[in-house]
Amino acid sequence: MLRNKLAALTPAVGAILFVFAWWLLYASKLIDPVLLPSPQDSFKAIWDGFVGGALISDFLITVRRTLLAFVIAVIISVPFGIILGSSVRLYSSVEFLIDFFRSTPASALFPLFLVILGVGEETKIAVAAFGASLLILFNTAYGVMNARKTRQAAARVMGASRFRVMLDVTLLESLPQTFVGMRTGVSFALVIVIVAEMFIGSTDGLGQRVINAQMIFNMPEMYATIFAAGVLGYGLNLLFILIERKFVHWGGK
């Protein structure tokens, strides 16, 4: 019984050891305490920041930008992915373009977007949406292209029209891959939004908060913000895994 209860705690072991090692390092005074505050101070900064502090508002601003970029990316690239994926010839005609821009670091496009859209909210969201949309686009297209031929044949032999096969089989077949694209897309959008908040004349958001804390040497604040960004990234990934499990319960089966 006790053994089973202890076994349930296994996933927490790494985290506990990490905090303990952090504390040891802090207590040993090997690193300047200004650079490495104690875990207690950092947790306090996180707590204060989230409970009525400014951290929570910056957190929510970053969430809003990331999700906005993600939604725009999905609206644009899922339909395009389906269209491209349904014709191998069409896809191969644009495959190079997609692969090229997918491989181009989206951060390298900031200056271009700045020239076009100016130093505003739009630029941050647009670059993030651009990067995420390519990821979603090619995953959706691959999902459609790699739909099981047997299932399509099964629907066809039952008398389904091309349109019905697309609607009833191919689209659902592509869904697991589309979700992979969406999950990587939203993580990618978060990365781009944080970077944009750091360097593109931002006055809010987690990225800007990290940079500010670093400049005024408020280390607990900086660690707290990094931790908040980690929570956001992890939470988004978890959320998408849960949505995926609900909507594509058959994935991988």
């Binding site: 047997t150 299932r151 099964a154 039952m158 009833d168 089989v169 594509v248 089966k253």
Partner: peptide, 24 residues
């Protein structure tokens, strides 16, 4: 009608068994 060798790839996993039967 056609029964495929590979039932795993012929049935629709997003539909319950009964809904697979009703699909045609």
């Amino acid at each position: 009608s056609y029964v495929f060798q590979n039932y795993r790839e012929a049935l629709f996993p997003w539909k319950r068994a009964i809904d697979n039967i009703k699909y045609p």
